[in-house]
Design a protein around this nucleic acid. Structure first.
Length: 425
RNA sequence: GGAGAGGUGGCCGAGUGGUUGAAGGCGCACGCCUGGAAAGCGUGUAUUCCGGGUGAACUGGAAUCGAGGGUUCGAAUCCCUCUCUCUCCGCCA
């Protein structure tokens, strides 16, 4: 949610900047400004009325204490009209506030200056690449074949238990999952992140605060009886830790890392290119979240990008880092870098991480503020997050890139975690 | 799941209809005191919204005592709904 103040003060600039995201705010911005102005004016009237009522009430109290019952009763009569008026204004006020809110949450975040214009992933900018793409030897298998051959993942069994998109990992496949989770967490802790294990179901307030509701309701699994949602990412519970919080500036930056399963309905997004591990309803992910001072949030973003890069390097995977163009940028993000690893068996790039700075957009909705040491007023903090990393596609890339005729090798960094050097049948 | 108790400011804790945004204490900040420190004394110490003021200091008003409604001229205090916590019993990994 964009801060109202910004919209009031620089409406033209906001409209202009949102064009980068291919968002037309020409109708929305004037509407919001008008609603806000109406709200202010109503509130002024209401405040004056309430002030008058408060004054009279005090007076009545004093009159009663002095035993002047007659005068007190006369004063009471004066309040009835004021009360009716205030009730009316109050109704108007809440209506305007709700109306304002519903319009306000339709505005996406303003993209950072460095975000290139564009409509699709085609126009994303390659920032840098690393690793070596294996020579296209014929006969490289996709991971779903390898998973079957080495009995690492049973997709059909998952279908039996739950449905498509819920694979069963087994034996060395299951072990590899566990190894990756531990590897990612340990690396994160060494990099200064604090590990937490949040709940993987959240309430409506949390889902709203991070923007899953009301728009992406269909993307989440909902537990009807208890009105709770399965999290689509650890970002939801972890970021909500800070909902309605005021931090001290010297507490910043805050850095959290969390492993959770993630659940996504992915309604209507199935097709031939989502075979195997490419897109699942349930998957594991380690997420990093930072809360930062606005002055250095982009420093934090760079730090996170470098950190994620260190992970894919240690996993010896060929990768590229993309700066997302306006059209590909998420609703809440100001600047996002995607990490893609090359999956040799499929001959395509797979997105394994998305690292974003939300600036104060998310904080505004969360009411996450901080206070400078000697200042009274609070300011919105900046929030950032990134996957570090999402497991399934990493597993896919590892299997495909490290496959040999008689087994699948592992990157050195992982061997202490798996306890085996290579996967064999 | 059954029964009971309770949610007040950073923390503890008073407060059952009238200058109570809220006593008192602790903590914290600043000042005085001191050679320095402790103790002591003094002052200050929530958030949001609207307005005045230079987007500072300061200042006027409104709202907030778990959340939302209601009664009343007036509610932290009374009523209703929801929610969370604690205790006992039951069940259970």
């Amino acid at each position: 949610m964009l801060p109202l103040k910004l919209i009031q003060e620089q409406p033209e600039w906001v409209i202009e900047r949102l064009k980068i995201k291919n968002f037309d705010a020409n109708d929305l911005i004037p509407k919001i400004i008008s609603l806000d102005n109406q709200r202010k004016s109503i509130q002024q009237q209401l405040d004056e009325l309430l002030a008058e009522l408060n004054r009279i009430s005090k007076e009545i109290g004093q009159l009663y204490q002095q035993g002047k019952t007659g005068e007190a009763n006369r004063a009471k009569e004066r309040t009835t009209e004021l009360k009716d008026q205030s009730r009316l204004l109050k109704e108007q006020h809440t209506r305007l506030e709700n109306d304002l809110q519903t319009h306000l949450i339709q505005l996406p975040n303003i993209p950072d200056e460095s975000v290139p214009p564009g409509h699709s992933a085609e126009e994303n900018q390659e920032v840098r690449t690393g690793g070596i793409i294996p020579d296209s030897i014929s006969g490289l298998l996709p991971h779903w074949e390898l998973a079957k051959q080495y009995q690492l993942i049973d997709f059909d069994l998952g279908s039996k238990l739950t449905g498509a998109g819920f694979p069963v990992y087994q034996q060395q496949g299951a072990h590899l999952q566990r190894a990756l989770i531990n590897f990612f967490l340990d690396e994160g802790i060494r990099a200064g992140y604090r590990e937490i294990q949040p709940p993987i179901v959240v309430n409506e307030d949390s889902a709203f605060a991070t923007g899953q509701l009301p728009d992406k309701e269909g993307q989440m699994y909902h537990l009807d009886v208890d009105d709770l949602y399965l999290i689509p990412t650890a970002e939801v519970p972890v970021t909500n830790i800070f909902r309605n919080e005021i931090l001290m500036a010297d507490q910043l930056p805050v850095k959290y890392i969390a492993y959770t399963p993630c659940f996504r309905r992915e309604a209507g997004s199935w097709g031939s290119h989502v075979r195997g591990l490419n897109r699942l309803h349930q998957f594991d992910k380690v997420e990093i979240v930072q809360v930062r001072h606005p002055d250095n949030s982009y420093q934090g973003l760079d730090e996170m990008v470098n950190y994620v890069e260190s992970l894919v390097k240690k996993l010896e995977l060929p990768y590229r880092i993309m700066r997302l163009c306006g059209g590909d940028l998420s609703f809440t993000s100001a600047l996002t870098y995607d990490f893609e690893v090359y999956s040799a068996g499929q001959g395509r790039w797979l997105e394994v991480s998305s690292v974003s700075n939300f600036e104060d957009f998310q904080a505004n909705r969360l009411k996450l503020r901080f206070k400078e040491q000697n200042e009274k007023r609070t300011k919105l903090a900046h929030t950032l997050n990134g996957s570090a990393l999402a497991l399934p596609r990493i597993v896919a890339a590892l299997l495909e890139n490290f496959q040999t005729q008689d087994g699948i090798n592992l990157p050195e960094a992982l061997k202490p975690y798996t306890g085996f050097d290579r996967i064999i049948s």
